[in-house]
């Protein structure tokens, strides 16, 4: 881990003001993410994890506090922070290759280089023969591979993932988790991943943050060995290991308690 934080989240609060109430989506959240780290964020719905991601991406300005990327405060969205969304964020009027080259084209990169980049990324995500297909003809898993490649084409320092595998079937999801890990290892990017799946969060996160709602805050932090282990061992073995299972049970019961509390509040 590098000395200096790649992403510094500095005492962020986010308050949504409604006509008759205030919602504290985030309350005094601080977090440092080191360069090349892969961090997953988990929490029940309403814990502010998507708000946090949107603030880092620059789509929202926090009520208080600031986010710094490599020391520079975030003022708005930027190409050095790539994003991968759940689904429906591809441009359906463009082909696979055109989707991937979108970022470099918007940033005015060299054409020849862009063609090479797209070709290389198509190879990495295994979609070479689909380059000229319209994206809507691809399956959900393939579409998410395009989304990953599109994000990587700009060579961002940080990749923010908002439930990128949430809409995929279980099998495709496992394969995609492997791809995410491989990309993390090969590119050395800093990755922040939001997910609903406890297993996915444990598996992919070198570090794991569990958030709690009302007000949105960081409840606990785990340092986990599984992402690194999975680079050498088969994913199934890692997930079946006793340590993995016990961490999973611990986190599940934690989130279960939070959900209970929410339900109790409403009842």
């Amino acid at each position: 881990m590098a000395e200096k934080a790649e992403i510094a989240i500095d005492r962020i609060s986010m308050v949504y003001t409604l006509p008759d109430s205030e919602v504290h989506a985030l309350n005094d959240v601080s977090l440092d993410i080191g360069k090349g780290e892969i961090l997953s964020v988990l929490g029940p719905s309403g814990c502010g994890k998507t708000t946090l991601l949107n603030i880092i991406a620059g789509f929202l300005s926090p009520t208080r506090g600031e986010v710094r990327i490599a020391g520079t405060p975030v003022k708005g969205p930027g190409a050095e922070r790539g994003m991968v969304f759940q689904q429906g964020a591809l441009f359906e009027w463009l082909s696979v290759a055109q989707n991937i080259s979108f970022g470099p084209r918007m940033c005015g990169r060299n054409r020849k280089e862009t063609v090479d980049t797209v070709q290389r990324l198509l190879g990495i995500v295994g979609l070479v023969e689909f380059a000229d297909k319209p994206v809507y003809q691809l399956s959900g898993g393939m579409q998410q591979r395009v989304a990953l490649a599109r994000c990587l084409a700009n060579d961002p320092d940080v990749i923010l993932m908002d439930e990128p595998l949430g809409a995929l079937d279980a099998l495709t999801r496992e394969k995609m988790q492997g791809l995410v890990l491989r990309l993390w290892k090969e590119t050395g990017k800093t990755i922040l991943l939001i997910t609903h799946s406890v297993e996915e969060a444990i598996f992919l996160g070198e570090r794991l943050i569990v958030m709690a709602p009302r007000p949105g805050r960081i409840e606990r932090e785990f340092n986990l060995p599984f992402a690194t282990e999975a680079l050498e061992k088969p994913a199934r073995d890692v997930k079946a290991g006793s340590e993995f299972v016990s961490v999973r049970e611990e986190i599940l019961s934690m989130i279960w308690d939070m959900e209970e509390e929410i339900m109790g509040d409403n009842g």
């Binding site: 789509f59 979108f102 599109r150 700009n154």
Partner: peptide, 10 residues
């Protein structure tokens, strides 16, 4: 999300 995606692609 499409607009957000485009913004974060620069």
């Amino acid at each position: 999300t499409k607009v957000h995606a485009a913004y974060s692609l620069g």
